[in-house]
Design a protein around this nucleic acid. Sequence first.
DNA 1: GGCTTGCGTTTCGCCTGGCGAAACGTCATC
DNA 2: GATGACGTTTCGCCAGGCGAAACGCAAGCC
Lengths: 227, 227
Amino acid sequence: MDPGPETPRGGVEAVDRALVLLTCFRDGATSLGLAELADRSGLNKSTILRICVSLLRRGFLERGEDGRYRIGPALWRLGACYRDALQLPSTLRPELHRLCEDIGETASFYVRDGDTRLCLFREEPARAIRHTLQEGASLPLSYGATALVLRAFGPAWDPNLDDIRQAGHAITRGARDPDVAAVAVPVQRQATLLGALALSGPVHRFDAQQVEHMIRVLKQSADRIVA
Amino acid sequence: MDPGPETPRGGVEAVDRALVLLTCFRDGATSLGLAELADRSGLNKSTILRICVSLLRRGFLERGEDGRYRIGPALWRLGACYRDALQLPSTLRPELHRLCEDIGETASFYVRDGDTRLCLFREEPARAIRHTLQEGASLPLSYGATALVLRAFGPAWDPNLDDIRQAGHAITRGARDPDVAAVAVPVQRQATLLGALALSGPVHRFDAQQVEHMIRVLKQSADRIVA
DNA sequence: GGCTTGCGTTTCGCCTGGCGAAACGTCATC
DNA sequence: GATGACGTTTCGCCAGGCGAAACGCAAGCC
């Protein structure tokens, strides 16, 4: 949580600290005690307590009966506001569902978020063995099929990714997890990249023939989404 | 945005102001300029500018090319964290989908959020005429079928709602909007209320017979969700 | 062109909000 | 009853940041 050797100065210190506190809730840490917060944020306990009064009052935090802190409902509301601002087509979620049902693998939609990628939506099939991921999960841009697509079709021009731009899709096998494979295509509206659409699942269900089929279906979906 | 005649004291002023700023994004206001923010929040422009530096740095706000502010991706991530903390059964979303398909009306799930209710999930049917609402929408507890259920089965015991507790469901016709009707049932896990499950649509499609059918299906869904 | 209006941004001296070490109360555990 | 971990409260000191005002810019108007 340490902001680095030299924080780029500017801004309001107290606000910064509050945001650091909120950001402590990640990697599955859905509830935190005061000591854990102090530990993760590096802030003085009394400082945290004071800031939490404000966060609690405005619904940005909640307290369980055990006294532990949790993220509050205001953040769900604002999260929805983020999604609304993206003005994504309403066809996105239905298309994901359709992809997931047709192919029988997890379908997901990622957007770029600075130097990470953010899973906005996902649909999982009802199969026993499937790729599980959470909406809201934040992953690095350094690996993964959606990461490649977001980088290849994003604003910055990386010559290493010419082949992906050429092909119009990206495939990875075991990039993040040795058992997981994924295929991704860009979703573009008038030459601007909205995000990446992907199918992911166990690597053994992604042979050449199936992957080819997935790419075809993914591209059709991407087209329908922005149609 | 005025916190009332006398803010309940305590907390950190700068943090409070930052949260007020974020809360300005609602009612479909997905992007705001500095002047609008100043207007809505009642804060001095220079104060806002200073606070925004922190919010921008941490990804809680974004700036469009037009210079306007929008909610940032960090809030989507945290919104997901709120949902995770509720530990809602993974069966919820599929059940909503099933309800929506079987009945052909909008299916939604609400939780209590202080003195309002918050739409966590919703599924809309593909019909031309349907009830449209947004995930993340915040509505009052004073009217609506889900509001009645959340109040009737929540912690505070309101004797006016005995009949709803008795019946195990609530029905409203034209409570919020004269054209909209809704039926809602509680979702309870070991006697604690998780939220309210509802079907809503145009009032003319909610005659006595259909409503009875919906109630039956809703209760089955609620049971399956917590099974 | 000149005037006006609205916007975002920057400045700066003054003052108070809030920082944090330390002390405290309260549970568990040994 | 000693120890440790935790959440909470206190309080004196001081720098963080408040906000009126000034500024620069672009668009609209006569």
